[in-house]
Amino acid sequence: NAIRLAGDMSHMASFFVLLFKINKSKSVAGISLKTQELYVLVFCTRYVDIFWNHLSLYNSLMKVIFIALSVMIVYVMRRGVPQRSTYNPELDSFPHHWLVLPCVLLGVAINQDPTSPFEMAWAFSIYLEAVAIMPQLHMVQKHGEAENLTSHYIFLLGLYRVFYLVNWVYRYMTEDGYWQAIVWVSGAVQAVLYLDFFYNYVKSKQKD
């Protein structure tokens, strides 16, 4: 449906905005490497099924694109010259292990099929995605204010989440037996994390 497509497009746009920012400004200052690495982990654990689930060309292609773009961002942040010298690890100080560990436990404990390692990995990726933005939000708070493109990037990520939430309501109403408790709860948690950011984003845009 169109709402979900809008969600996917704003998600993809967020990658391009971030790549554009770090290529143009030659700087990754204010960008959380931890969040970006968590996203690589999210996509690699969620899209293992790319090898056996061929739902549509769209789905398979988007999976490859999401993995490739997230790996590319981490690559530029770690290896890019001069980008790698502009990274501030002292500001990127969120204790990310405390995000990954509970998500692993939750993924093993609560999933759609306790006998399937793929379902565990998939559930893990859903839980981790919900909280993966936290190191980035923490960094924005420590910095005081985010650069324009960085805030557009975070805004697009939050927008993607909002589109998906609306898409779930729409699917629940139009598709018989459509039920996705894990995804809905995690998605709602993820959206809540953006509320404070959204508030400040809109406020600063009004000021401009």
Binding site: D49, M62, D113, N167, Y178
Partner: peptide
């Protein structure tokens, strides 16, 4: 989705 149903969202 029922268990093991292909995941159709990203």
């Amino acid at each position: 989705a029922t268990p093991n149903e292909p995941k159709d969202e990203l």
